[in-house]
């Protein structure tokens, strides 16, 4: 290891800014595109949320310039939020209810699914069987939601969908039309997610499990521990940190049901239950061009997510977990 003075550039020495800019010229230049990207595409929209407090107009009479609409649109305080919470046409409580019914159902079923499957995979001792099943269950992750939606349509539709007809036979001709009945919308979305992502979701837990020292299992077995005690005292503690981090992120996205999947599965008949924040913001804001109102809904969603993530992280830390930062 060379420790000559020439090596100074590699040590975190505080140089005066001007000299630092010269010595590390290329580091600054390299960071520039990424930083510019973040300023333009992440931070400018963050300041753009100001439009949630305005009656934002695309064109302002007598003013031109890139940011004129943001500067000269009339400020209306919290009016957009008032409209959002109280107006019948927005129907905030239905939005919140639909969003929560999907995300809570997904927290209850979709979240634990990969954990359970990875515990099962971990018990499989035949390397070949494990490899083949793993290869198969990862596949749906790589397929787009448009394809998943179209396959779902082909399997569940009432004219020639195989799943519908099998259900129909089992239920004596009274199978529900899952694609259109509103009460099946949340289970349909969560079911799709489970089908698509459970397999792939096991990777992260299997990675945590692969780090477990096998001697722990052997020692416990010598002490007479059975399968369940091994799982409870060794396997589960090994993935606890990962589970907590995933849970924090999940809690943070309780209002983010995602746009694509819901938009793709929604139709005229199940629409009442398919109105969630993300699709609402798209339809109100972009299709109907009510920019300020839907920006307010977006801001509400972002703020709630931030609060949820930070508090979940705080709680995890108070419980002695490492949290995610």
């Amino acid at each position: 290891m060379a420790k000559s003075k020439k090596n100074a550039a590699y040590k975190p020495v505080k140089l005066p800014l001007f000299k630092d800019l010269k010595v590390h010229k290329w580091l600054f230049i390299m960071a520039l595109p990424g930083v510019l990207y973040m300023i333009i595409f992440n931070y400018m929209p963050m300041f753009g949320v100001i439009m949630a407090f305005q009656d934002w107009k695309f064109r302002i009479r007598g003013h031109s310039g890139l940011f004129a609409p943001f500067i000269y649109s009339e400020f209306v305080g919290f009016d957009n939020f008032k409209t959002m919470f109280t107006s019948r046409t927005v129907d905030f409580w239905a939005l919140l209810g639909n969003t929560l019914s999907i995300s809570l159902l997904s927290l209850a079923l979709y979240f634990p699914a990969p954990i359970i499957l990875s515990l099962f995979l971990n018990e499989i001792r035949s390397a070949g069987y494990k490899r083949v099943t793993q290869t198969l269950i990862y596949i749906p992750h790589f397929v787009s939601l448009v394809i998943v939606a179209s396959i779902t349509q082909q399997l569940f539709n009432t004219t020639d969908g195989i799943v519908y007809h099998v259900l129909n036979q089992m239920m004596g001709g009274k199978a529900p039309d899952i694609l259109t009945r509103p009460q099946y919308f949340a289970p349909l979305i969560v079911g799709q997610s489970i089908w698509k992502e459970t397999g792939y979701g096991t990777i992260i837990f299997l990675a945590a499990l692969s780090g477990v020292d096998m001697q722990l299992y052997e020692a416990a077995r010598v002490d007479g521990a059975g399968r369940w005690r091994l799982m409870w005292h060794i396997t589960l503690p090994a993935i606890r940190g990962t589970v907590v981090i995933m849970l924090i992120m999940r809690v943070g996205s309780v209002l983010n049901t995602g746009f694509e999947q819901i938009y793709l599965m929604k139709n005229d008949i199940n629409a009442p239950k398919a109105k969630v924040f993300d699709t609402y913001i798209y339809e109100r804001g972009i299709v109907q061009q009510q920019y300020s109102l839907s920006a307010a809904a977006g801001l509400f969603k972002s703020v709630v997510s931030l609060i949820m993530v930070l508090s979940a992280n705080k709680i995890a830390k108070l419980c002695g977990e490492s949290g995610f930062y």
Binding site: L15, H24, F28, N42, P45, G285, I286, S294, S302, L310
Partner: peptide, 25 residues
Amino acid sequence: DFRWRNGITNMVIITMLFSGGMIPS
């Protein structure tokens, strides 16, 4: 030894926690 390492890293982390949303973008 990159001077603004912490500052820019924090900038990145903030984008993971908060976004302006669909409409401003």
